[in-house]
């Protein structure tokens, strides 16, 4: 791996992050929405603050958020703070910082979706590869179509069905949340078990819909790979079936799937917003929806920035590792 390639790639990464920060700085200013006034109006309409006090509070907020400084200074400060993951205070939960809200929600989302994404990928890719394999056992052809059908349906809709069946009708799993309401998050086996039980339905809804997605992509790639000349030569070498399947077929057909895996890992932060909403899961998606409802712009932009960061990191890792997977790609071309 050449140093210049790595440096160049890192440069692109920083450029993207700078672009994202700049975008999230200017958009609310272009959109002509003053987040503070919006928020104050909302509070006032609920009778939380009297109209007379609003003016003073707005001044106070603007000062604390640094909105009274010239634009250029605001921008530089914003960039510097963003780089340190300091997104300021949440507008809705004022004294709480955006950073601490995100820190609390992020692990829930990351753990759930990382596990689920790898599960989807593994099962789906295997299923898809087997489907395109002429010597596959017959039952696979029966198992596959339901997953293909489910893959067309968004997973939160499947989640609603699962809640009705498993949480309401049969009461096997908890209805919503990430853990029992009485308990506080801690590293105890009882709490972890509780958290796992709560995550089974959200995970199941994503897996049910996700497997088919990976299987369809893989089946297409594997079908094309089966037609390649090197598969014919490999078979004429009298290779054992499993070696042919894994090291000649799947190994080649999987290359685009790995790109897709990296991208979907990058999308983890925003990947399951609606599943989290449906299950009231305490992750980033739920936070995002709250931010939308509360016009909590600082929280909203913090989450957006984080999402873009996730995608940028995923593509960076992919670009740095892909040449190891596909010898035809060289670093020089980056």
């Amino acid at each position: 791996m050449t140093t210049s390639y790595v440096l160049k790639r890192l440069g692109v990464f920083l450029l993207v992050m700078w672009g994202a920060a700049t975008f999230s700085f200017f958009l609310p200013r272009i959109a002509d929405v003053n987040p503070i006034e919006e928020r104050m109006a909302q509070l006032a309409s609920r009778g939380a603050v009297s109209v007379g006090n609003t003016e003073a509070m707005i001044k106070n907020f603007e000062k604390r958020f640094g909105l009274d400084k010239p634009l250029a200074e605001q921008y530089v400060r914003y960039l510097w703070n963003t780089a340190r993951f300091d997104f300021g205070f949440s507008i809705a939960f004022f004294p709480t910082s955006v950073g601490s809200i995100i820190r609390e929600a992020l692990p829930w989302t990351i753990v759930l979706l990382t596990v689920v994404t790898f599960m989807n990928f593994t099962i789906g890719v295997l299923l898809g590869a087997v489907l395109a394999w002429p010597r596959a056992p017959a039952f696979v052809k029966v198992v596959a179509p339901p997953f293909m059908g489910l893959s067309a349906i968004p997973y939160y809709l499947i989640g609603i069905g699962l809640i009705y069946l498993f949480a309401f009708s049969w009461q096997i799993f908890p209805i919503s949340g990430g853990y029992n309401i009485g308990s506080t998050p801690q590293w105890s086996s009882a709490f972890l078990w509780d958290a796992v039980r709560h995550s089974i339905l959200p995970a199941a809804s994503i897996v049910l819909s996700g497997i088919g997605f990976w299987a369809i992509g893989m089946r297409g790639m594997m079908t094309m790979t089966m037609g390649e000349d090197y598969m014919l030569l490999a078979e004429s070498k009298g290779l054992k079936g499993w070696r042919l399947f894994i090291w000649y077929g799947m190994r080649n057909a999987m290359l685009p799937q790995i790109t897709a895996l990296a991208l979907s890992l990058g999308h983890i932060v925003s990947g399951a917003i609606l599943v989290e909403v449906v299950f009231s899961y305490p992750g980033i998606g739920g936070m995002l929806v709250q931010a939308i409802r509360n016009f909590d712009f600082t929280l909203l932009y913090g989450i957006v920035y984080l999402t873009i960061l996730g995608i940028a990191i995923a593509t960076l890792i992919l670009d740095l590792t892909y040449p190891r997977l596909d010898p035809r790609i060289t670093y020089a071309k980056g």
């Binding site: 999230s24 958009l27 609310p28 272009i30 959109a31 929405v33 999308h267 925003s270 990947g271 917003i273 995002l288 939308i292 016009f295 712009f297 909203l300 957006v304 999402t307």
Partner: peptide, 12 residues
């Protein structure tokens, strides 16, 4: 993610 862009646009 398209939904994220839409969230930002719709809120703005």
């Amino acid at each position: 993610p398209a939904l994220l862009i839409l969230v930002v646009v719709a809120v703005s």
